[in-house]
Simulated assay, not measured.
Amino acid sequence: MRLLIPAAILLGSTVTAFALTPSQTTILKPYVSSAQPGFTPSAERGRAFFFANHGGGKADTPACTSCHTTDLKKPGQTRAGKAIDPMAPSVVPTRYSDAAEVDKWFRRNCKDVLGRECTAEEKADALVFLFGL
């Protein structure tokens, strides 16, 4: 069964709906379930979160784009110089196929960027934004 998320939520448009893959639904569901009652993921909030400069984390990683760049269909690079696959599942279809892997990277990257773990809402918003790339 595929979860349909209205495009208004994902893309800021009411023209179409975005169907999550079964893997994406599996990845997203625990974050939405853990969020505040009535929460609906927003790609617009996810995009704003991903591109924002945050305080509290490491000085050399104030934003997700510090390593992932602003073109999420292209490779990024860690501060140590290691290549990072593009974030867009349209470029790397297996990008969000392992829930444990997604959770591991949220845990590490949120601490580096924010100085804390991301909330369930922040994770869900970021994911619906990234799924739509």
Rank of each mutant, 00 (worst) to 15 (best):
H68G: 06
F51R: 06
N53H: 12
T40P: 00
L4V: 14
I84M: 10
S33W: 03
I9F: 08
D112W: 12
G81H: 06
F50T: 01
A19H: 13
K73S: 13
D125E: 03
Q36S: 15
A83I: 09
R107V: 03
H54Y: 03
P75I: 03
T69W: 00
S66L: 01
G132S: 15
Q36R: 15
V91L: 05
P41C: 06
F106Q: 04
K29Q: 15
G76S: 12
Y96V: 01
V102Y: 08
A88Y: 10
A63R: 07
A19V: 07
K58G: 09
R79P: 04
P62M: 02
I9T: 13
F39E: 05
A126Q: 11
G132N: 13
P89E: 01
G46R: 05
R47M: 12
M1I: 02
F51E: 09
F129Q: 10
V113D: 09
H54C: 10
A48G: 02
C67E: 05
T14W: 07
A7T: 01
P22F: 02
V113I: 15
K74Y: 02
F106C: 02
G115N: 09
P22S: 11
P37D: 10
C64Y: 11
A99H: 04
A99L: 13
V91Q: 09
A124D: 07
K111F: 13
T25H: 14
T14G: 15
